[in-house]
């Protein structure tokens, strides 16, 4: 696999391809997709020999984000692809390209209510049949965050000592409260 060639193909399909630091995030590339290019992207990934690691939904505003993780059997190349669902909470299925996505998509339907259009059998898999509308992993309004709040902040990853020092100072202010929390 020629990574530069594949990267160019990703760029043609996506809105943004970003190199990320494997040592910090555990991924090599971050690819942002429009949902109509998703199936082309999945087909390309399969052709290049990537396997589907995982597929999941994250509830953020403005819309639920569906995250796809790919990796390769021969070289270390972890790819994170993201796409947002549309107004009707729909996104195209990739279960006919990556059959392993079938169950992951059913799980995302269970937990977040994401509808994968043209999925062959979008029935509850983990939850019982009667809990089809429960959608337990949707956030309550108070806990719901904007998508920018859960993204890595651009200036922060560079200075390394910072994250080490920062959390150290804060717990000193109220160590008692933390202790009781941990014990419970």
């Amino acid at each position: 696999m020629d990574i530069n060639k594949v990267k160019k193909q990703w760029q043609a399909l996506s809105t943004n391809v970003e190199d990320i630091d494997y040592a910090v995030s555990g991924h090599d590339f971050n690819v942002c997709l429009e949902s109509d290019k998703l199936r082309d992207f999945a087909a390309l990934m399969l052709e290049e020999g990537f396997y589907l690691v995982d597929l999941m939904a994250v509830h953020v505003t403005p819309a639920i984000e569906v995250v796809y993780q790919f990796a390769h059997f021969e070289t270390r190349c972890r790819v994170l692809a993201r796409a947002f669902v549309d107004d009707k909470c729909e996104i195209p299925t990739i279960s006919d390209i990556y059959q392993g996505a079938n169950w992951h998509e059913r799980e995302a339907r269970d937990f977040h209510g994401v509808v994968f259009s043209d999925h062959p059998y979008l029935h509850p898999i983990i939850l019982p049949e009667e809990d089809v509308d429960l959608k337990p992993l949707l956030k309550k309004e108070a806990g719901l965050k904007d998508v920018d709040a859960v993204r890595r902040k651009p200036p922060e990853p560079a200075p390394e000592p910072k994250p080490k020092v920062k959390p150290e100072v804060e717990p000193k202010a109220k160590p008692e409260a933390v202790k009781s929390q941990e014990q419970s």
Binding site: V53, A71, R78, V150, K164, P171
Partner: peptide
């Protein structure tokens, strides 16, 4: 030696395999 009691994770996403 120094692990903060309250472990704050900087915003972003992380993967460990």
């Amino acid at each position: 030696a120094k692990v903060p009691k309250k472990l704050k994770i900087p915003a972003g996403d992380y993967n460990s395999s």
